[in-house]
Computed example of a mutant assay.
Amino acid sequence: MEKPTHSQAPAFILGVDVSKDSLDVCLVCCAGGRELSRKTNNNPSGFRRLKAWLKQHGCEAGPETLCCLEHTGLYTRQLVHYLLAREVRVWMESALQIKRSIGMVRGKDDKVDAQRIARYALLHQSQAKCVNLSGVTLERLKDLQANRSRLQKALQSIKVTIKELLAVDPVSGKTLEQVNKKAVQGLEKSMEQVEEKMQEFIAKDDALKGKYDLLTSVKGVGKVLAVSLLVYTQGFTRMDDGRKLACYCGVAPFEYRSGTSIMAKAGVSKFANKNLKQVLHMAALNSVRYNQEMKAYFDRKVAEGKSKMSVLNAVRNKLLHQIVAVIKRGTPYEIRLDKI
């Protein structure tokens, strides 16, 4: 989860470029502005050597230190847990955000990347959002979600191949269907077990269970979208604004105009979480089919001449705003047909 950074300014900034086997570290003393670099292993013994090196230069690696690093998936997990155990403020920033803030650069080097991350953190420290991973439930949900996605892709690949072969060569298609029957059943069983384990973890965490129940009270929001939103928003601590969440999902429309020569239609940005956008799209389709409020809205806008895709995108936005509303309000969603 994320929380606002401490009000007290850090004494030291630590920029870390993380790779699978190693860490490139840049230490900046906020008082003097000096930069020191170090390379170490990305494992517990490397973390201990890093701590000893920091101590040599007056950094106790505690609450007075702000460590900034990019999201690199599993490779950051051990380091983040090690730093949080020592109360270091950990700021995980988007790699694209750091890259765009630097401007035009040429070449790439891990040591230089660590220096750039440290300088970015020094310049934007007031905007830092520090991580708090005290609850491991979200981490486990994220791992299970990734596993479910891989199982789903494998299952879809087999089924599509069989379906296409049956259309052009029924005999060979039947053979393929028969030899893959146990594989398909096994993948489907594994997906069921993953989903059951997700529900088990959510049920054990009262705070997440409450938010999960609120999310699924919105018609069209199923368990897949609910879990995805909890994971990607860190239990709605990273973002609790409908517009920001819509931007993150890639469904918020933006104007594209400049002077008199560029007058394009409003469109969505490509900078988005594609996985979450796909799940949200399926939820919007279900909402239009089974949610009377959304169905009435969709039919009315289409009848007014709006394209179906633009109206469907509006439905995705409405869903997200409803989701944020129930989370903020803390009460389940209720359909009001008089507001359609």
Rank of each mutant, 00 (worst) to 15 (best):
residue 4 P to S: 09
residue 12 F to D: 08
residue 15 G to A: 13
residue 22 S to N: 10
residue 22 S to Q: 08
residue 27 L to H: 07
residue 28 V to L: 14
residue 34 R to A: 13
residue 34 R to K: 11
residue 38 R to H: 15
residue 39 K to F: 03
residue 40 T to C: 14
residue 41 N to R: 12
residue 42 N to Y: 02
residue 43 N to D: 15
residue 51 K to F: 04
residue 52 A to D: 11
residue 58 G to F: 12
residue 60 E to S: 12
residue 61 A to C: 13
residue 65 T to G: 02
residue 73 G to Y: 09
residue 83 L to M: 12
residue 89 R to V: 00
residue 91 W to C: 02
residue 92 M to K: 10
residue 93 E to S: 03
residue 96 L to V: 12
residue 99 K to I: 09
residue 103 G to K: 09
residue 107 G to M: 08
residue 110 D to L: 05
residue 111 K to E: 13
residue 113 D to C: 02
residue 113 D to Q: 03
residue 117 I to E: 10
residue 120 Y to K: 14
residue 122 L to S: 14
residue 124 H to T: 12
residue 126 S to H: 06
residue 128 A to K: 03
residue 128 A to G: 01
residue 137 T to E: 09
residue 138 L to P: 01
residue 139 E to L: 00
residue 143 D to G: 03
residue 149 S to Q: 12
residue 151 L to P: 10
residue 159 K to A: 14
residue 163 K to N: 14
residue 169 D to A: 13
residue 175 T to C: 08
residue 180 N to P: 11
residue 181 K to E: 14
residue 187 L to S: 05
residue 189 K to N: 12
residue 189 K to Q: 12
residue 191 M to L: 14
residue 194 V to I: 13
residue 195 E to R: 12
residue 196 E to N: 07
residue 197 K to W: 14
residue 201 F to H: 10
residue 205 D to A: 04
residue 208 L to A: 01
residue 208 L to R: 00
residue 211 K to T: 08
residue 212 Y to Q: 07
residue 219 K to G: 01
residue 224 V to N: 10
residue 229 L to F: 09
residue 247 C to H: 03
residue 250 G to R: 08
residue 250 G to D: 01
residue 254 F to L: 09
residue 259 G to I: 11
residue 261 S to C: 05
residue 262 I to N: 01
residue 270 K to V: 06
residue 279 V to I: 15
residue 280 L to I: 02
residue 284 A to Q: 07
residue 285 L to K: 07
residue 287 S to Y: 06
residue 293 E to C: 04
residue 293 E to N: 01
residue 301 K to P: 02
residue 303 A to R: 11
residue 305 G to V: 07
residue 305 G to H: 03
residue 305 G to E: 06
residue 308 K to W: 01
residue 308 K to A: 11
residue 311 V to C: 00
residue 312 L to K: 11
residue 320 L to M: 10
residue 321 H to Q: 12
residue 322 Q to T: 13
residue 323 I to G: 06
residue 325 A to Q: 10
residue 326 V to W: 00
residue 327 I to N: 02
residue 334 E to M: 07
residue 339 K to P: 02
